[in-house]
Amino acid sequence: MKRPATRALLFDKDGTLFHFGETWNAWALAVIDRLAGGDAARREALARAARYDLDTQRFDPSSPIIAGTNREAAECLMTALPGFPLAALEALLTDLAKDAPLVPTVHLPGLFAALKSAGFALGLMTNDTEEAARSHIGRAGLADSFDFVAGFDSGFGAKPDPGPLRAFAEATGHAPAACAMIGDSVHDLVAGRAAGMKTVGVLTGPARASTLAPFADVILPDIGHLPVWLGTGFPKND
Rank of each mutant, 00 (worst) to 15 (best):
L96H: 04
A97L: 06
K98L: 09
D99F: 02
A100Q: 02
A100L: 14
P101K: 08
P101Q: 10
V103N: 10
T105K: 07
V106W: 09
H107Q: 12
L108R: 06
G110Q: 15
F112E: 11
F112L: 09
L115N: 08
L115F: 10
L115T: 06
K116M: 03
S117I: 00
F120M: 08
A121S: 15
L122V: 12
G123R: 01
L124M: 09
M125Y: 14
M125V: 08
D128C: 07
T129V: 14
T129A: 08
T129N: 06
A132D: 01
A132P: 02
A133F: 05
R134M: 06
S135W: 05
H136N: 13
R139F: 08
R139L: 14
A140V: 09
G141M: 08
A143H: 03
A143P: 00
D144E: 14
V149P: 06
V149M: 08
A150T: 02
A150D: 12
D153H: 13
S154Y: 03
F156Q: 01
A158T: 03
D161S: 14
D161Q: 06
P162T: 03
P162S: 05
P164H: 04
P164I: 12
L165Y: 14
R166N: 15
A167F: 01
A169P: 03
A169R: 00
E170L: 15
A171G: 11
A171S: 15
A178C: 12
A178R: 02
C179E: 03
M181Q: 11
